[in-house]
Simulated assay, not measured.
Amino acid sequence: MHANVTSLLLEAAYLMAVGMFVVFLFLGGLIGAMTLVAWLNRKFPEPVTKQLNFPQQGSQLKSELSLGLIAAITAAVHQHRNK
């Protein structure tokens, strides 16, 4: 069962054209959706909210760690790396 080369090339060209058309439609829809979202963001902007200033928790955490805890963590890491 030998297929005609011309019919195979026509089928390949048809599949390529359909695939390119589907990709073109998808990308066009994506651009349309992005344009719509941008328009909606300009039309209905988010209200500006006041930001609250919280104290930094890193400084509290550093003072709460005892030297014994730091030594225990260091020893555990050192023991794990030497296995």
Rank of each mutant, 00 (worst) to 15 (best):
M20E: 11
G32R: 06
V22Q: 06
G32Q: 11
L67M: 13
N53V: 07
F21D: 08
L25E: 02
F24H: 05
A71T: 14
F21M: 08
T6Q: 12
F24P: 00
L15D: 09
L25F: 02
L52K: 14
A33W: 11
A75W: 06
Q60T: 04
N53T: 10
L25Y: 00
A71G: 10
A38I: 05
A3D: 05
S59N: 02
L69K: 14
A17T: 12
L8M: 12
A75V: 10
A76Q: 03
A76S: 07
F54H: 03
H80D: 05
V48D: 10
A72Q: 14
G32F: 06
H78L: 06
K83L: 09
M1N: 07
V18C: 13
V77S: 00
S7T: 15
G32M: 02
H80G: 03
G19L: 14
L36C: 01
L67H: 11
K43S: 07
M20H: 02
G19F: 12
L52V: 15
K50F: 06
G68E: 15
G19T: 13
V37Q: 12
A72R: 13
E11W: 01
H2F: 10
V48T: 12
N41W: 07
F54P: 01
F26L: 14
A17S: 15
R42D: 11
V48R: 12
V18R: 14
Q60I: 07
A17E: 13
A71N: 09
L27I: 08
R81I: 10
Q60F: 00
A13G: 05
K50S: 07
N82V: 04
Q57R: 07
